[in-house]
Design a protein around this nucleic acid. Structure first.
Lengths: 203, 203
DNA sequence: GTTTTAACGGTTCCATGGTTCCGTTAAGGT
DNA sequence: ACCTTAACGGAACCATGGAACCGTTAAAAC
Protein backbone atom coordinates (compact mmCIF):
# COMPACT_ATOMS: atom_id res chain seq x y z
CA UNK A 1 0.00 0.00 0.00
CA UNK A 2 1.30 3.38 -1.00
CA UNK A 3 1.06 6.41 1.25
CA UNK A 4 -1.63 8.73 -0.06
CA UNK A 5 -0.32 12.26 0.15
CA UNK A 6 2.45 12.04 -2.47
CA UNK A 7 2.38 14.58 -5.28
CA UNK A 8 2.38 13.10 -8.78
CA UNK A 9 5.78 13.33 -10.40
CA UNK A 10 7.75 12.94 -7.18
CA UNK A 11 8.24 9.18 -7.13
CA UNK A 12 9.36 8.70 -10.73
CA UNK A 13 10.64 12.12 -11.73
CA UNK A 14 12.86 10.87 -14.57
CA UNK A 15 12.30 10.21 -18.25
CA UNK A 16 8.79 10.86 -19.46
CA UNK A 17 7.74 12.80 -16.36
CA UNK A 18 10.64 15.22 -16.80
CA UNK A 19 9.91 15.59 -20.51
CA UNK A 20 6.27 16.34 -19.77
CA UNK A 21 7.18 18.95 -17.16
CA UNK A 22 9.62 20.62 -19.51
CA UNK A 23 7.23 20.90 -22.45
CA UNK A 24 4.31 21.94 -20.24
CA UNK A 25 6.32 24.72 -18.61
CA UNK A 26 7.51 25.95 -22.01
CA UNK A 27 3.93 25.86 -23.28
CA UNK A 28 2.73 27.68 -20.17
CA UNK A 29 5.28 30.43 -20.77
CA UNK A 30 4.16 30.75 -24.39
CA UNK A 31 0.50 30.86 -23.42
CA UNK A 32 1.11 33.47 -20.70
CA UNK A 33 3.12 35.64 -23.07
CA UNK A 34 0.35 35.46 -25.66
CA UNK A 35 -2.88 35.62 -23.68
CA UNK A 36 -1.83 36.96 -20.28
CA UNK A 37 -2.60 35.63 -16.84
CA UNK A 38 -6.38 35.76 -17.04
CA UNK A 39 -6.32 34.09 -20.45
CA UNK A 40 -4.36 31.10 -19.21
CA UNK A 41 -6.29 27.94 -20.05
CA UNK A 42 -4.81 24.67 -18.82
CA UNK A 43 -6.43 22.73 -21.65
CA UNK A 44 -4.76 25.07 -24.13
CA UNK A 45 -1.43 24.55 -22.39
CA UNK A 46 -1.90 20.80 -22.65
CA UNK A 47 -2.63 21.11 -26.37
CA UNK A 48 0.47 23.24 -26.97
CA UNK A 49 2.63 20.85 -24.97
CA UNK A 50 1.11 17.87 -26.81
CA UNK A 51 0.18 16.34 -23.51
CA UNK A 52 -3.11 15.08 -22.13
CA UNK A 53 -5.07 17.77 -20.35
CA UNK A 54 -5.72 15.29 -17.55
CA UNK A 55 -1.99 15.30 -16.87
CA UNK A 56 -1.83 19.05 -16.54
CA UNK A 57 -4.80 19.19 -14.20
CA UNK A 58 -3.48 16.30 -12.12
CA UNK A 59 0.02 17.66 -11.65
CA UNK A 60 -0.62 21.39 -11.37
CA UNK A 61 -4.39 21.65 -10.78
CA UNK A 62 -4.64 25.47 -10.96
CA UNK A 63 -3.19 28.19 -13.22
CA UNK A 64 -1.38 29.76 -10.28
CA UNK A 65 0.03 26.37 -9.30
CA UNK A 66 1.44 25.94 -12.78
CA UNK A 67 2.89 29.44 -12.75
CA UNK A 68 4.51 28.83 -9.38
CA UNK A 69 6.27 25.81 -10.84
CA UNK A 70 7.24 27.84 -13.89
CA UNK A 71 8.83 30.42 -11.59
CA UNK A 72 10.74 27.74 -9.70
CA UNK A 73 12.04 26.58 -13.06
CA UNK A 74 12.95 30.10 -14.15
CA UNK A 75 14.80 30.61 -10.89
CA UNK A 76 17.20 27.84 -11.86
CA UNK A 77 18.33 29.41 -15.12
CA UNK A 78 20.72 32.13 -14.01
CA UNK A 79 21.96 34.90 -16.26
CA UNK A 80 25.48 36.26 -15.75
CA UNK A 81 26.06 39.86 -14.79
CA UNK A 82 28.54 42.39 -16.13
CA UNK A 83 31.60 43.73 -14.31
CA UNK A 84 32.87 46.95 -15.84
CA UNK A 85 34.83 48.23 -12.87
CA UNK A 86 32.54 51.22 -12.36
CA UNK A 87 29.43 51.08 -10.18
CA UNK A 88 27.41 53.42 -12.35
CA UNK A 89 28.27 51.47 -15.48
CA UNK A 90 27.36 48.17 -13.85
CA UNK A 91 24.06 49.56 -12.58
CA UNK A 92 23.33 50.95 -16.03
CA UNK A 93 24.01 47.56 -17.57
CA UNK A 94 21.66 46.02 -15.04
CA UNK A 95 18.95 48.60 -15.71
CA UNK A 96 19.31 48.13 -19.45
CA UNK A 97 19.00 44.38 -19.05
CA UNK A 98 15.83 44.82 -17.02
CA UNK A 99 14.40 47.19 -19.63
CA UNK A 100 15.37 44.83 -22.42
CA UNK A 101 13.66 41.96 -20.60
CA UNK A 102 10.50 43.87 -19.74
CA UNK A 103 10.07 45.24 -23.25
CA UNK A 104 10.82 41.96 -24.97
CA UNK A 105 7.71 40.79 -26.86
CA UNK A 106 7.79 37.43 -25.10
CA UNK A 107 9.43 38.16 -21.75
CA UNK A 108 7.56 41.39 -21.06
CA UNK A 109 4.05 39.93 -21.11
CA UNK A 110 5.39 36.84 -19.36
CA UNK A 111 6.79 38.82 -16.45
CA UNK A 112 3.63 40.88 -16.18
CA UNK A 113 1.64 37.67 -16.06
CA UNK A 114 3.68 35.93 -13.38
CA UNK A 115 3.57 39.04 -11.23
CA UNK A 116 -0.19 39.24 -11.65
CA UNK A 117 -0.44 35.57 -10.70
CA UNK A 118 1.67 36.16 -7.61
CA UNK A 119 -0.80 38.79 -6.38
CA UNK A 120 -3.52 36.13 -6.51
CA UNK A 121 -1.85 33.22 -4.72
CA UNK A 122 0.55 33.03 -1.75
CA UNK A 123 2.39 29.98 -3.03
CA UNK A 124 3.05 31.69 -6.36
CA UNK A 125 4.09 34.85 -4.53
CA UNK A 126 6.66 32.81 -2.59
CA UNK A 127 8.13 31.46 -5.80
CA UNK A 128 8.25 34.93 -7.29
CA UNK A 129 10.05 36.28 -4.22
CA UNK A 130 12.59 33.45 -4.38
CA UNK A 131 13.15 34.13 -8.06
CA UNK A 132 13.89 37.80 -7.49
CA UNK A 133 15.94 37.14 -4.36
CA UNK A 134 18.24 35.04 -6.55
CA UNK A 135 18.40 37.56 -9.39
CA UNK A 136 19.15 40.37 -6.95
CA UNK A 137 21.88 38.38 -5.20
CA UNK A 138 23.51 37.71 -8.56
CA UNK A 139 23.86 41.42 -9.26
CA UNK A 140 24.67 42.48 -5.70
CA UNK A 141 28.24 41.40 -6.49
CA UNK A 142 28.91 44.57 -8.45
CA UNK A 143 27.90 46.66 -5.44
CA UNK A 144 30.19 44.75 -3.07
CA UNK A 145 32.97 45.27 -5.63
CA UNK A 146 32.25 49.00 -5.60
CA UNK A 147 32.29 48.93 -1.81
CA UNK A 148 35.72 47.31 -1.86
CA UNK A 149 36.92 49.96 -4.29
CA UNK A 150 35.72 52.55 -1.79
CA UNK A 151 33.11 54.00 -4.15
CA UNK A 152 30.37 53.74 -1.54
CA UNK A 153 30.02 54.38 2.20
CA UNK A 154 30.90 51.34 4.34
CA UNK A 155 27.87 49.41 5.52
CA UNK A 156 25.87 50.02 2.34
CA UNK A 157 23.41 47.17 1.70
CA UNK A 158 24.26 45.74 -1.75
CA UNK A 159 20.86 44.10 -2.31
CA UNK A 160 19.06 47.34 -1.54
CA UNK A 161 21.06 49.18 -4.21
CA UNK A 162 20.14 46.60 -6.84
CA UNK A 163 16.52 46.73 -5.80
CA UNK A 164 16.64 50.52 -6.09
CA UNK A 165 17.62 50.14 -9.74
CA UNK A 166 14.78 47.77 -10.58
CA UNK A 167 12.06 49.43 -8.54
CA UNK A 168 11.34 52.44 -10.78
CA UNK A 169 11.37 50.23 -13.87
CA UNK A 170 8.84 47.76 -12.49
CA UNK A 171 6.84 50.70 -11.19
CA UNK A 172 6.59 51.99 -14.74
CA UNK A 173 5.70 48.57 -16.08
CA UNK A 174 3.01 47.79 -13.56
CA UNK A 175 1.68 51.05 -12.21
CA UNK A 176 2.17 54.22 -14.24
CA UNK A 177 2.69 52.85 -17.74
CA UNK A 178 5.48 55.35 -18.42
CA UNK A 179 7.85 54.31 -21.23
CA UNK A 180 10.55 51.75 -20.53
CA UNK A 181 13.41 53.01 -22.66
CA UNK A 182 17.12 53.74 -22.42
CA UNK A 183 16.41 57.04 -20.68
CA UNK A 184 14.37 55.28 -18.03
CA UNK A 185 17.20 52.79 -17.50
CA UNK A 186 19.82 55.50 -17.09
CA UNK A 187 17.58 57.44 -14.74
CA UNK A 188 17.01 54.36 -12.60
CA UNK A 189 20.72 53.52 -12.45
CA UNK A 190 21.73 57.13 -11.87
CA UNK A 191 19.34 57.79 -9.01
CA UNK A 192 20.16 54.50 -7.32
CA UNK A 193 23.87 55.31 -7.52
CA UNK A 194 23.29 58.84 -6.23
CA UNK A 195 21.25 57.65 -3.26
CA UNK A 196 23.83 54.96 -2.53
CA UNK A 197 26.70 57.47 -2.61
CA UNK A 198 24.68 59.69 -0.25
CA UNK A 199 24.67 56.81 2.22
CA UNK A 200 20.94 56.15 2.06
CA UNK A 201 21.40 52.38 1.90
CA UNK A 202 23.77 52.10 4.84
CA UNK A 203 22.71 49.48 7.42
CA UNK B 1 -35.57 53.78 -33.68
CA UNK B 2 -32.66 54.15 -31.33
CA UNK B 3 -29.06 54.07 -32.50
CA UNK B 4 -27.52 50.75 -31.62
CA UNK B 5 -24.03 51.38 -30.29
CA UNK B 6 -24.91 53.18 -27.03
CA UNK B 7 -23.58 51.75 -23.78
CA UNK B 8 -26.23 50.94 -21.16
CA UNK B 9 -26.36 53.55 -18.42
CA UNK B 10 -25.44 56.48 -20.67
CA UNK B 11 -28.92 57.67 -21.70
CA UNK B 12 -30.56 57.62 -18.29
CA UNK B 13 -27.67 57.86 -15.86
CA UNK B 14 -29.69 59.23 -12.94
CA UNK B 15 -31.63 57.68 -10.11
CA UNK B 16 -31.70 53.92 -10.16
CA UNK B 17 -28.87 53.56 -12.68
CA UNK B 18 -26.56 55.64 -10.48
CA UNK B 19 -27.59 53.71 -7.37
CA UNK B 20 -26.89 50.44 -9.13
CA UNK B 21 -23.47 51.61 -10.29
CA UNK B 22 -22.57 52.80 -6.81
CA UNK B 23 -23.53 49.61 -5.03
CA UNK B 24 -21.97 47.40 -7.70
CA UNK B 25 -18.66 49.25 -7.54
CA UNK B 26 -18.65 49.05 -3.74
CA UNK B 27 -19.43 45.34 -3.94
CA UNK B 28 -16.71 44.85 -6.54
CA UNK B 29 -14.19 46.51 -4.25
CA UNK B 30 -15.25 44.28 -1.37
CA UNK B 31 -15.06 41.16 -3.50
CA UNK B 32 -11.62 42.08 -4.86
CA UNK B 33 -10.31 42.79 -1.38
CA UNK B 34 -11.61 39.45 -0.15
CA UNK B 35 -10.98 37.04 -3.02
CA UNK B 36 -8.44 38.81 -5.21
CA UNK B 37 -8.50 39.43 -8.92
CA UNK B 38 -8.74 35.82 -10.06
CA UNK B 39 -11.50 35.14 -7.55
CA UNK B 40 -13.70 37.91 -8.89
CA UNK B 41 -17.08 36.45 -9.86
CA UNK B 42 -19.59 38.83 -11.41
CA UNK B 43 -22.51 36.79 -10.11
CA UNK B 44 -21.09 37.13 -6.59
CA UNK B 45 -20.72 40.88 -7.07
CA UNK B 46 -24.35 41.05 -8.19
CA UNK B 47 -25.44 39.15 -5.09
CA UNK B 48 -23.45 41.46 -2.77
CA UNK B 49 -24.81 44.55 -4.50
CA UNK B 50 -28.34 43.12 -4.35
CA UNK B 51 -28.66 43.56 -8.06
CA UNK B 52 -29.58 41.16 -10.85
CA UNK B 53 -26.57 39.40 -12.31
CA UNK B 54 -27.91 40.17 -15.76
CA UNK B 55 -27.42 43.84 -15.00
CA UNK B 56 -23.79 43.37 -14.08
CA UNK B 57 -23.04 41.33 -17.19
CA UNK B 58 -24.88 43.79 -19.41
CA UNK B 59 -23.21 46.93 -18.11
CA UNK B 60 -19.68 45.69 -17.44
CA UNK B 61 -19.47 42.34 -19.25
CA UNK B 62 -16.01 41.31 -17.99
CA UNK B 63 -14.20 41.43 -14.63
CA UNK B 64 -11.54 43.73 -16.08
CA UNK B 65 -14.24 46.01 -17.49
CA UNK B 66 -15.79 46.31 -14.06
CA UNK B 67 -12.41 46.99 -12.47
CA UNK B 68 -11.65 49.67 -15.05
CA UNK B 69 -14.87 51.43 -14.06
CA UNK B 70 -13.99 51.00 -10.40
CA UNK B 71 -10.65 52.70 -11.05
CA UNK B 72 -12.33 55.57 -12.87
CA UNK B 73 -14.52 55.96 -9.80
CA UNK B 74 -11.56 55.78 -7.42
CA UNK B 75 -9.78 58.43 -9.48
CA UNK B 76 -12.53 60.91 -8.62
CA UNK B 77 -12.14 60.63 -4.85
CA UNK B 78 -9.03 62.66 -4.14
CA UNK B 79 -7.17 62.63 -0.84
CA UNK B 80 -5.43 65.81 0.36
CA UNK B 81 -1.66 65.94 0.80
CA UNK B 82 0.38 67.36 3.65
CA UNK B 83 2.53 70.49 3.57
CA UNK B 84 5.08 70.57 6.35
CA UNK B 85 7.51 73.07 4.83
CA UNK B 86 10.29 70.50 4.46
CA UNK B 87 10.69 68.31 1.40
CA UNK B 88 11.93 65.30 3.32
CA UNK B 89 9.06 65.52 5.78
CA UNK B 90 6.51 65.83 2.99
CA UNK B 91 7.98 62.87 1.14
CA UNK B 92 7.99 60.85 4.35
CA UNK B 93 4.34 61.68 4.89
CA UNK B 94 3.64 60.57 1.35
CA UNK B 95 5.59 57.33 1.77
CA UNK B 96 3.84 56.61 5.05
CA UNK B 97 0.47 57.19 3.44
CA UNK B 98 1.36 54.76 0.65
CA UNK B 99 2.52 52.16 3.18
CA UNK B 100 -0.58 52.67 5.25
CA UNK B 101 -2.75 52.18 2.17
CA UNK B 102 -0.92 49.14 0.87
CA UNK B 103 -0.91 47.39 4.24
CA UNK B 104 -4.52 48.19 5.00
CA UNK B 105 -6.51 44.94 5.21
CA UNK B 106 -9.00 46.18 2.63
CA UNK B 107 -7.03 48.61 0.49
CA UNK B 108 -3.90 46.47 0.21
CA UNK B 109 -5.55 43.46 -1.44
CA UNK B 110 -7.70 45.84 -3.47
CA UNK B 111 -4.71 47.66 -4.92
CA UNK B 112 -2.92 44.41 -5.65
CA UNK B 113 -6.03 43.22 -7.46
CA UNK B 114 -6.55 46.27 -9.62
CA UNK B 115 -2.88 46.26 -10.60
CA UNK B 116 -3.13 42.58 -11.51
CA UNK B 117 -6.23 43.35 -13.57
CA UNK B 118 -4.41 46.15 -15.36
CA UNK B 119 -1.70 43.73 -16.51
CA UNK B 120 -4.43 41.67 -18.19
CA UNK B 121 -6.38 44.33 -20.07
CA UNK B 122 -5.33 47.53 -21.89
CA UNK B 123 -8.50 49.45 -21.05
CA UNK B 124 -8.04 48.68 -17.34
CA UNK B 125 -4.36 49.62 -17.62
CA UNK B 126 -5.37 53.00 -19.04
CA UNK B 127 -7.68 53.64 -16.10
CA UNK B 128 -4.93 52.63 -13.67
CA UNK B 129 -2.46 54.98 -15.32
CA UNK B 130 -4.98 57.84 -15.16
CA UNK B 131 -5.61 57.09 -11.49
CA UNK B 132 -1.93 57.26 -10.60
CA UNK B 133 -1.28 60.27 -12.84
CA UNK B 134 -3.85 62.14 -10.74
CA UNK B 135 -2.48 60.93 -7.41
CA UNK B 136 1.05 61.83 -8.41
CA UNK B 137 0.02 65.29 -9.59
CA UNK B 138 -1.67 65.91 -6.24
CA UNK B 139 1.58 65.29 -4.37
CA UNK B 140 3.89 66.94 -6.89
CA UNK B 141 2.89 70.22 -5.25
CA UNK B 142 5.20 69.60 -2.31
CA UNK B 143 8.14 69.22 -4.70
CA UNK B 144 7.37 72.46 -6.57
CA UNK B 145 7.16 74.13 -3.16
CA UNK B 146 10.60 72.75 -2.29
CA UNK B 147 11.89 73.99 -5.64
CA UNK B 148 10.61 77.48 -4.87
CA UNK B 149 12.33 77.31 -1.48
CA UNK B 150 15.55 76.48 -3.33
CA UNK B 151 15.85 73.03 -1.72
CA UNK B 152 16.32 71.34 -5.10
CA UNK B 153 18.23 72.04 -8.32
CA UNK B 154 16.23 74.10 -10.83
CA UNK B 155 14.61 72.01 -13.54
CA UNK B 156 13.88 69.07 -11.25
CA UNK B 157 10.80 67.15 -12.45
CA UNK B 158 8.32 67.14 -9.53
CA UNK B 159 6.32 64.13 -10.75
CA UNK B 160 9.47 62.07 -11.06
CA UNK B 161 10.40 62.73 -7.43
CA UNK B 162 6.98 61.59 -6.23
CA UNK B 163 7.20 58.50 -8.41
CA UNK B 164 10.64 57.78 -6.94
CA UNK B 165 9.04 57.63 -3.48
CA UNK B 166 6.32 55.20 -4.49
CA UNK B 167 8.39 52.96 -6.75
CA UNK B 168 10.35 51.03 -4.10
CA UNK B 169 7.18 50.54 -2.04
CA UNK B 170 5.18 49.09 -4.92
CA UNK B 171 8.23 47.05 -5.88
CA UNK B 172 8.16 45.47 -2.44
CA UNK B 173 4.42 44.90 -2.61
CA UNK B 174 4.39 43.31 -6.05
CA UNK B 175 7.81 41.87 -6.69
CA UNK B 176 10.08 41.09 -3.75
CA UNK B 177 7.58 40.74 -0.90
CA UNK B 178 9.89 42.65 1.46
CA UNK B 179 8.09 44.19 4.44
CA UNK B 180 6.15 47.42 4.00
CA UNK B 181 6.79 49.18 7.30
CA UNK B 182 7.82 52.57 8.64
CA UNK B 183 11.47 51.81 7.86
CA UNK B 184 10.62 51.07 4.24
CA UNK B 185 8.71 54.34 4.02
CA UNK B 186 11.59 56.39 5.44
CA UNK B 187 14.06 54.64 3.15
CA UNK B 188 11.91 55.37 0.11
CA UNK B 189 11.47 59.03 1.04
CA UNK B 190 15.12 59.44 1.99
CA UNK B 191 16.58 57.99 -1.17
CA UNK B 192 14.16 59.91 -3.39
CA UNK B 193 15.14 63.13 -1.64
CA UNK B 194 18.85 62.31 -1.90
CA UNK B 195 18.64 61.55 -5.62
CA UNK B 196 16.59 64.70 -6.17
CA UNK B 197 19.13 66.86 -4.30
CA UNK B 198 21.88 65.28 -6.43
CA UNK B 199 20.07 66.60 -9.50
CA UNK B 200 19.11 63.19 -10.89
CA UNK B 201 15.58 64.29 -11.74
CA UNK B 202 16.55 67.48 -13.59
CA UNK B 203 14.86 67.80 -17.00
C1' DG C 1 -49.86 63.54 -14.67
C1' DT C 2 -48.94 60.87 -18.85
C1' DT C 3 -46.04 58.68 -22.25
C1' DT C 4 -42.02 56.54 -23.94
C1' DT C 5 -38.51 53.43 -23.53
C1' DA C 6 -33.91 52.83 -20.99
C1' DA C 7 -32.46 49.96 -17.68
C1' DC C 8 -33.35 46.39 -14.40
C1' DG C 9 -33.88 41.45 -12.97
C1' DG C 10 -35.78 36.62 -12.75
C1' DT C 11 -35.65 32.38 -15.42
C1' DT C 12 -33.98 29.43 -18.80
C1' DC C 13 -30.55 27.75 -21.57
C1' DC C 14 -26.00 26.49 -23.37
C1' DA C 15 -21.01 26.23 -23.98
C1' DT C 16 -16.86 25.29 -21.68
C1' DG C 17 -13.57 24.44 -18.03
C1' DG C 18 -12.48 21.01 -15.12
C1' DT C 19 -13.23 16.14 -12.95
C1' DT C 20 -13.74 11.17 -13.02
C1' DC C 21 -12.98 6.72 -15.02
C1' DC C 22 -10.23 3.43 -16.74
C1' DG C 23 -7.09 1.45 -19.99
C1' DT C 24 -2.07 2.17 -21.63
C1' DT C 25 2.77 3.27 -21.21
C1' DA C 26 7.11 3.35 -19.25
C1' DA C 27 10.20 4.47 -14.81
C1' DG C 28 12.65 2.33 -11.17
C1' DG C 29 13.87 -1.63 -8.69
C1' DT C 30 15.24 -6.52 -8.62
C1' DA D 1 14.91 -9.27 -18.74
C1' DC D 2 10.93 -8.95 -15.72
C1' DC D 3 7.63 -7.03 -12.44
C1' DT D 4 5.28 -3.49 -10.03
C1' DT D 5 2.94 0.53 -10.19
C1' DA D 6 3.66 5.69 -11.03
C1' DA D 7 2.34 8.57 -14.38
C1' DC D 8 0.19 9.44 -18.73
C1' DG D 9 -3.85 10.20 -21.87
C1' DG D 10 -8.32 9.57 -24.26
C1' DA D 11 -13.32 9.77 -23.52
C1' DA D 12 -17.30 10.46 -21.10
C1' DC D 13 -19.31 13.24 -17.75
C1' DC D 14 -20.84 17.22 -14.92
C1' DA D 15 -20.99 21.65 -12.70
C1' DT D 16 -20.80 26.42 -13.44
C1' DG D 17 -20.08 30.95 -15.64
C1' DG D 18 -22.12 33.77 -18.75
C1' DA D 19 -25.68 34.67 -22.66
C1' DA D 20 -30.54 35.01 -24.36
C1' DC D 21 -35.33 35.94 -23.47
C1' DC D 22 -38.88 38.61 -21.88
C1' DG D 23 -41.76 40.77 -18.50
C1' DT D 24 -41.31 44.74 -14.95
C1' DT D 25 -39.82 49.15 -13.09
C1' DA D 26 -38.79 53.79 -13.19
C1' DA D 27 -35.94 57.95 -15.62
C1' DA D 28 -36.48 61.59 -18.65
C1' DA D 29 -39.28 64.48 -21.52
C1' DC D 30 -43.55 66.75 -22.25
Amino acid sequence: MTSEGVEPGTVRPGGRTARVRESVLRAAGDALAEHGFDGLDLADVARRAEVGKTTVYRRWSTPTGLIADLLDDMAEQSSPRTDTGSLLEDLRANAQLVVKTLTDPRQGPLFRSVIAAATCDPRTAESLHRFYAIRIKEWAGCVTAALERGELPAGTDPDEVIRAVSAPLYYRLLVTGDPLDAAAADLAAGSAAAAARAGEYVR
